[in-house]
Amino acid sequence: METKNILMVGVGGQGTILASKILSEGLVELGYDVKMSEIHGMSQRGGSVSTQIRYGKEVFAPTIGAGEADIMVSFETMEAARYIGMVKPDAKIIINRYRIFPPDVLAGECDYPDTIIDDLSAKLDVISLDAAGIAAGLGNPKCMNIVLLGALIKGMGLDTADWDSIIAKMVKPQFVELNRKALRAGMDAVE
């Protein structure tokens, strides 16, 4: 099989790292060779972050070049636009309708771009979802990352793995049930 490329983008503190850890654990369990690369800049909160995951029979490069991602999940709306140069023209794009204002918008220097989801949808295969709302509905907004992971897993057709037991291995016992629900809710959201 050809190596598949997944791109997860977001803002520091959104939980992309846990999501990508669970995902790569599952991919290993499914018998794939896996490489995962994180760019976490400096220690401060709030910067743009990206995780790249590649899986297949034998994976070489640890990173994805321009135009190589098969799927992108954006944990924050505008980050989808920032990394759009990384995706294939026929890539699947899952966008969280969730905004984190960058410094210039917070300070009132400029506006948060309003049309990103429409702009991308005009040319690309985009699914947008309110992962924050879904997570809040499950009783804990913090599981937003796992909702998005669920959407990604569905989007890549990886839902055959035993994610329930992988989650049980990766998160604290008191959060296992919540995260399982979140994962399922995310899968359902992209149906």
Binding site: V11, G41, M42, Q44, G46, G47, S48, A61, T63, I64, G65, A66, G67, E68, M78, A81, R82, I84, G85, V87, K88, P89, A91, P102, P103, D104, V105, C110, Y112, P113, T115, I116, D119, L120, A122, K123, L124
Partner: peptide
């Protein structure tokens, strides 16, 4: 990265998604 080497050696560039949109920078801040 792979794209840079591919372009340098074979002169090939992968097709990119053509979209026009706006992005605001997210520089690190204290």
């Amino acid at each position: 990265n792979s794209s840079i080497i591919r372009k340098a050696v074979f002169g090939e560039e992968l097709p990119l998604a053509e979209v026009k949109t706006t992005v605001v920078g997210r520089p690190p801040a204290l």
